[in-house]
Simulated assay, not measured.
Amino acid sequence: MPAPTERAARIGGQVEAFVRDHVIPYERDPRCGPHGPSDALVLEMREKARAAGVLTPHIRDDGGHLTQRETAFVLRLSGLSPLGPVALNTAAPDEGNMFLLGKVGSDEQKRRFLDPLVRGQARSAFFMTEPAAEGGAGSDPSMMRTTAVPDGNHWVVNGRKAFITGAVGAQVGIVMAKSADGACMFLVDLPDPAITIERVLDTIDSSMPGGHAVVAIDGLRIPADQMLGHSGEGFKYAQIRLAPARLSHCMRWLGACVRANEIATDYACRRHAFGKPLIDHEGVGFMLAENLIDLKQAELMVDWCAGVLDGGAPGTVESSMTKVAVSEALMRIADRCVQVMGGTGVSGDTIVEQVFREIRAFRIYDGPTEVHKWSLAKKIKRDRTTA
């Protein structure tokens, strides 16, 4: 893996120092709940990040982004705490939404919707997934049932959405719906009386502000100039967001597993059993050795995919491969960390058990492993047939 650029090394060093010195102490803050840190805690951490010059570190002062390889280096370090991405404004869904708006949004849309996100003054939500019980869109976005109908210089949107991360407390929404032309994306100010939070789901993960909500959209009127791009091109814009967003998940959770492995290694070197440190027992030492191997392989996969994106390719196949390889490797790492630490590993005394929960959810978010493998298998067949 090539060494980080001078710019990435400088920013990454500042990010790591801030996370270790200022964010990690917040991990025991009572404002961290089952549906993520409170908005008051988020704003408090972001004010400190702003003062330290590390808020939204992957976006340059001129509005441009670091390269994907540079972003990988920086976002991995922001992920050393589950609170790090939230504190530094590198978390999902905001990070992916900022990327999409930067690529597709008009100048006015960027001023109104993107700028507050980049400044860390607002959170956003991406309204795509729909309730499975109603046959709505999930892993297959073509099943979308939410409708968008033109009405003069407005669009009227109706439907229900599910697993909408950060909907509670968000100020910016990107709503996907289906018009007669196909999928569309709309930008909306939140809250809106036509958008009702029906409930916030109790899920295995707990790092994202606002949790994951089920939402009803009833007669939402959106001015036509708040459509992102053009009617029927929503899936094309989703593809612009897709590969980088998949990859940034890998970056952040790689950092979390680096930290979990640090904690497990420290525990194994200090804890004694049967007359010697745990790490001197092969069953424990071998697990930590396997963690180092998986961490390095995950790092290399992320860097490889980032290089593909930096080369201008869409990276759809490469990001699928990376998402599968990295999420599965990180699950093995998190599981071993829990196992090495025994009872302590399943307790809340360290963030190891939270990392385990978060990584388990990551194997589903941005496409389950099995969907990515199915998509890759289709490509294998297609390539073989046309060869």
Rank of each mutant, 00 (worst) to 15 (best):
residue 15 V to T: 01
residue 218 D to A: 00
residue 251 M to T: 10
residue 285 G to M: 14
residue 342 G to M: 03
residue 111 R to N: 12
residue 295 L to T: 08
residue 346 V to M: 11
residue 73 F to Y: 15
residue 351 I to E: 12
residue 18 F to K: 04
residue 63 G to C: 09
residue 59 I to A: 14
residue 267 Y to P: 10
residue 92 A to Y: 15
residue 317 V to D: 06
residue 182 G to Q: 10
residue 69 R to A: 13
residue 177 A to G: 01
residue 312 G to K: 09
residue 2 P to F: 12
residue 260 A to K: 00
residue 70 E to A: 03
residue 365 Y to T: 11
residue 78 S to K: 05
residue 285 G to Y: 03
residue 228 L to K: 07
residue 383 D to E: 01
residue 117 L to E: 05
residue 122 A to F: 10
residue 343 G to D: 12
residue 149 V to E: 04
residue 353 E to M: 13
residue 308 V to A: 02
residue 318 E to R: 02
residue 227 M to G: 08
residue 55 L to E: 13
residue 240 I to G: 15
residue 348 G to D: 11
residue 278 L to F: 10
residue 281 H to C: 11
residue 342 G to H: 05
residue 220 L to W: 04
residue 375 S to A: 05
residue 273 A to K: 13
residue 26 Y to S: 09
residue 132 A to T: 00
residue 107 D to Y: 09
residue 193 P to D: 12
residue 3 A to T: 04
residue 97 N to W: 04
residue 25 P to R: 09
residue 318 E to W: 09
residue 176 M to G: 12
residue 97 N to M: 14
residue 241 R to M: 15
residue 268 A to E: 07
residue 30 P to D: 14
residue 240 I to T: 14
residue 107 D to A: 09
residue 195 I to V: 10
residue 156 V to E: 01
residue 174 I to V: 08
residue 337 C to Y: 02
residue 200 V to T: 15
residue 6 E to K: 15
residue 188 V to M: 12
residue 90 T to L: 08
residue 177 A to W: 00
residue 165 T to Y: 05
residue 48 K to H: 13
residue 360 R to S: 08
residue 49 A to E: 01
residue 336 R to G: 01
residue 1 M to D: 15
residue 371 V to T: 11
residue 380 I to F: 02
residue 310 D to N: 08
residue 36 G to A: 14
residue 262 E to M: 01
residue 373 K to G: 01
residue 160 R to V: 06
residue 183 A to L: 09
residue 178 K to F: 02
residue 345 G to P: 06
residue 91 A to E: 14
residue 126 F to T: 00
residue 167 A to G: 10
residue 304 W to Q: 04
residue 384 R to N: 00
residue 301 M to N: 11
residue 361 A to E: 10
residue 213 A to H: 06
residue 93 P to D: 14
residue 295 L to R: 06
residue 53 G to F: 00
residue 148 A to M: 05
residue 268 A to W: 05
residue 199 R to A: 12
residue 326 V to Y: 02
residue 334 A to D: 06
residue 75 L to A: 03
residue 321 M to P: 00
residue 80 L to K: 03
residue 56 T to K: 03
residue 300 L to G: 06
residue 250 C to H: 03
residue 328 E to G: 05
residue 257 C to Q: 04
residue 66 L to K: 08
residue 83 L to N: 10
residue 108 E to S: 04
residue 375 S to W: 15
residue 38 S to P: 07
residue 277 P to H: 01
residue 228 L to H: 02
residue 222 I to Q: 05
residue 38 S to W: 14
residue 173 G to V: 12
residue 369 T to L: 14
residue 278 L to W: 07
residue 147 T to D: 00
residue 24 I to K: 06
residue 104 V to W: 07
residue 305 C to S: 09
residue 301 M to Y: 08
residue 222 I to W: 03
